[in-house]
C-alpha cells in the first residue's frame, strides 16, 4: 500500500485488475488445450492450490497479522464435505466447492467469534487446537471412511473435454485467480486499511474508529471459505482420501511458509512464494526424493525469517529505495 507516494505510478484500478486476471485465466486455458501430457496438469494443480491457500491465509495472517495454524482443518473440512456430498447426492464439482466454502466460512465465523477476542499468539494456539479437534472428529466419521479413508471415483473425462485432471486444473486456476483478485480488492479497500491498522496496533485502530472485532471475524470467514474451496476438489485429485493426507503437515507448513517467503504485505507476495516453493518442491520430488520436500521448505523458511523477514517483496522494495 503505497498509494499516496507521490512519485509512484498510479496503481491499477480494481476493475482493470479483474479484467487482466480474467484475460490471464483465458490465456492459460487456451494454452492448456494444447497440452497432452497429464503430468503438467497434476503439477500445475498443486502450484495453483498453493497459490489459493497462501492467498487465503494471507488475507488474515498477512493483512491483519493474525497467524492461523489451522489451515489444515479448513482444507480438510472442504475436502471431506465434498467427499460426503459426492457420496450422498453426487453433486457436480462447482456445487461441492461452493458447499465446502460455505461450511468453512461458517466454521471461520464460529472460530472467529470464539477466538478473535484472543490477541496474537493465543489466537494462533486456538487455531492449532481447532486443527487437532477436527482431525479427531473426522477420523471418527464413518460415513466418509473414518480412519481407513475413502475412495472417490474420478471420472475419466472432464465436462470440457480432455481428462478430468485437466478439468480440475482449470477449476483450480479459476479459484486461485478469483482468490488473488479478492485479496487485492480487499487490500486496496477501506477494509485493507482497517486490517493494516489492526496489524500495526489494535488499540489505536479501535480508537481510530475501526470496528476491529467485526473486521477480524469477516476476514476469518473469507479466509476460511477460500481454504475450504481449495480443499473441495482434493478428493477427485487424490482419489483416495484419508485423514493423514487431508490433514497433511506439508499443507499447514507450506501455507504459512509461502506468504512469508514472498512477503505478506501485498497480494503478490503469497503468489510469488507459492509458485516458487511449490515448483522447488515438485522439482525436488522428481529429481531427489519425495521426503526431502519439507526439509527444503523448512530451510528456505528459516533462511527468509532470519535474512529477509519481509520476504522477496520486502527485498525488492528495499532495493528500490
Amino acid at each position: 500500500m503505497t498509494g499516496d507516494a507521490p512519485l509512484s505510478r498510479p496503481p491499477m484500478g480494481t476493475l482493470a485488475f479483474w479484467c487482466w486476471a480474467a484475460a490471464f485465466t483465458g490465456v492459460v486455458y487456451l494454452a492448456g488445450r494444447w497440452v497432452t501430457n497429464d503430468y503438467v496438469f497434476f503439477a500445475g494443480y498443486i502450484v495453483l492450490q498453493y497459490v489459493l491457500l497462501a492467498t487465503a491465509w494471507n488475507i488474515l495472517g498477512g493483512y491483519a497479522g493474525y497467524v492461523n495454524f489451522g489451515t489444515a482443518a479448513f482444507f480438510a473440512i472442504g475436502a471431506y464435505i465434498s467427499t460426503a456430498l459426492n457420496k450422498w447426492l453426487g453433486l457436480p464439482l462447482p456445487v461441492l466447492i461452493l458447499a465446502g466454502a460455505a461450511v468453512c466460512g461458517l466454521i471461520g465465523l464460529l472460530m472467529g467469534g470464539l477466538t478473535l477476542k484472543l490477541q496474537g499468539v493465543f489466537f494462533s494456539i486456538a487455531t492449532l487446537a481447532l486443527a487437532i479437534v477436527t482431525q479427531a472428529l473426522i477420523t471418527n466419521w464413518e460415513y466418509v471412511g473414518g480412519a481407513a479413508g475413502a475412495y472417490v471415483i474420478r471420472p475419466s473425462r472432464g465436462p470440457l473435454g480432455g481428462s478430468y485432471v485437466e478439468y480440475l486444473f482449470y477449476t483450480m486456476l479459476l479459484l486461485a485467480t478469483l482468490a488473488v483478485c479478492i485479496a487485492r480488492t480487499v487490500e486496496r479497500s477501506a477494509a485493507g486499511y482497517g486490517l493494516a491498522a489492526i496489524r500495526d496496533d489494535e488499540a489505536a485502530a479501535e480508537a481510530a474508529g475501526v470496528p476491529t472485532m467485526k473486521l477480524k471475524v469477516a476476514t476469518t470467514v473469507l479466509s476460511g471459505a477460500l481454504m475450504g474451496a481449495a480443499g473441495a476438489p482434493l478428493p477427485f485429485f487424490v482419489t483416495y482420501l484419508d485423514p493423514p493426507s487431508a490433514f497433511n503437515l506439508a499443507v499447514a507448513v507450506n501455507t504459512i511458509a509461502m506468504p512469508l517467503v514472498g512477503g505478506t504485505a501485498t497480494w503478490i507476495g503469497p503468489v510469488i512464494g507459492a509458485v516458487l516453493l511449490s515448483i522447488v518442491q515438485e522439482a525436488a520430488m522428481v529429481t531427489i526424493s519425495s521426503a526431502v520436500n519439507l526439509l527444503l521448505v523448512g530451510l528456505i523458511m528459516i533462511g527468509f525469517i532470519t535474512l529477509a523477514p519481509n520476504g522477496i517483496m520486502g527485498l525488492l522494495r528495499g532495493r528500490r529505495r
Binding site: G3, A196, D200
Partner: peptide
C-alpha cells in the same frame, strides 16, 4: 495516546486515512 502509537507499516498520510475512512 501517551506514547505515540502510529500505524507503522502505513505512510503518514495513510495513518490519517484510517480514521477518515472509518
Amino acid at each position: 495516546f501517551q506514547l505515540p502509537r502510529p500505524f507503522g507499516s502505513l505512510t503518514v498520510a495513510e495513518n490519517l486515512r484510517v480514521p477518515l475512512l472509518y
